[in-house]
């Protein structure tokens, strides 16, 4: 045991062994699954601490390693959640795995949202589209657990159809709460859906609060982000108040391998979270 402990401290490429405790199929097309992972070794569990917005490398021996945002909040104690879109080799292999299978987790990596500094005391607007809600779920839960540290919390979350929404049970629970304002929307009118209909940018334009003493955390496809900005800017939001999370291909996750640089920054180490003001200064390499 002492031996392996030493390895982990010295070798940043060595993943922690973990076991799949639970698999939740999130979306109707089956392409998104949430994996609840439990680190195998008690000392790893004890030492683990992350900030919402950070990610980890999931390792499948024989398939490879991929960066995935941590969907669970540090305040949840029952393992780590990762919501994975089936896209290629590693995500495909992960999707075919069953409860009890072993995987590796290397992390936490990256900076995360400044939940304990810049965001404290602010009104928070979370804007998410599609499956990019994952690390924002972690952020929201963290804030709800430390509710008094933040002002008003507004969530705008959209997906193509009701069946493509992540974390549906939780969405319903949050909708019942009175300390968070939920705006869940789908792209087009669908039978049985009684909630909002419309694209995220449109809804954001309608419901976004004043920028006073507020920050927005936006995650979603690049087009969504692009079209969400103008309505926000119209009511006075500035780039300094908006946080984004970039997604660049990466291999090491620790600022060496060179894959994820976006101009002068390494997304893995300096990011993945940046203010939009910072992003606007970068070359468009994301």
């Amino acid at each position: 045991m002492a031996e392996s402990k030493k390895e982990q401290i010295n070798n940043p490429y060595m993943p922690f062994p973990a076991r799949i405790e639970d698999i939740i199929v999130e979306t109707e097309d089956g392409n998104l699954k949430t994996f609840r992972l439990m680190l195998e070794r008690p000392e790893d569990r004890e030492n683990w601490s992350h900030v919402p917005g950070q990610f980890a490398m999931l390792s499948l021996a024989g398939r490879g390693e991929i960066p995935i945002g941590i969907a669970s909040s540090p305040t949840e104690k029952d393992g780590l959640l990762f919501t994975v879109n089936k896209a290629g080799v590693v995500t495909g292999a992960l999707h075919s795995m069953e409860v009890g299978a072993s995987v590796g987790v290397r992390g936490p990596l990256g900076n995360g949202f400044p939940v304990d500094s810049e965001l404290k005391g602010k009104n928070i607007v979370i804007i998410a589209g599609g499956f990019a809600f994952t690390t924002l779920r972690a952020t929201l839960l963290y804030m709800l657990a430390n509710r008094r540290d933040y002002g008003r919390i507004t969530v705008i979350y959209g997906a193509r159809t009701p069946g493509m929404l992540l974390y549906r049970k939780e969405l319903e629970e949050w909708q019942k709460r009175d300390d968070v304002e939920m705006h869940v929307t789908i792209d087009r009118e669908t039978q049985g859906w009684t909630g909002l209909v419309g694209f995220v940018p449109t809804v954001a334009g309608q419901v976004a609060p004043s920028p006073e003493n507020a920050v927005a955390l936006i995650c979603g496809p690049p087009v969504m982000i692009k079209f969400t900005m103008p309505p926000l800017e119209k009511i006075g939001w500035t780039d300094e108040q908006v946080y984004l999370s970039l997604e660049n291909r990466m291999k090491c996750g620790i600022g060496i391998c060179g894959h994820c640089n976006c101009g002068p920054v390494y997304v893995c180490k300096d990011g993945p979270v940046f203010t939009r003001a910072e992003v606007m200064k970068l070359p468009v390499e994301f």
């Binding site: 490429y13 499948l60 021996a61 024989g62 291999k251 090491c252 060496i256 391998c257 060179g258």
Partner: peptide
């Protein structure tokens, strides 16, 4: 130039 890729081979 020191960039690398990581891959598993079986």
């Amino acid at each position: 130039c020191y960039c690398f890729d990581i891959q598993d081979e079986v």
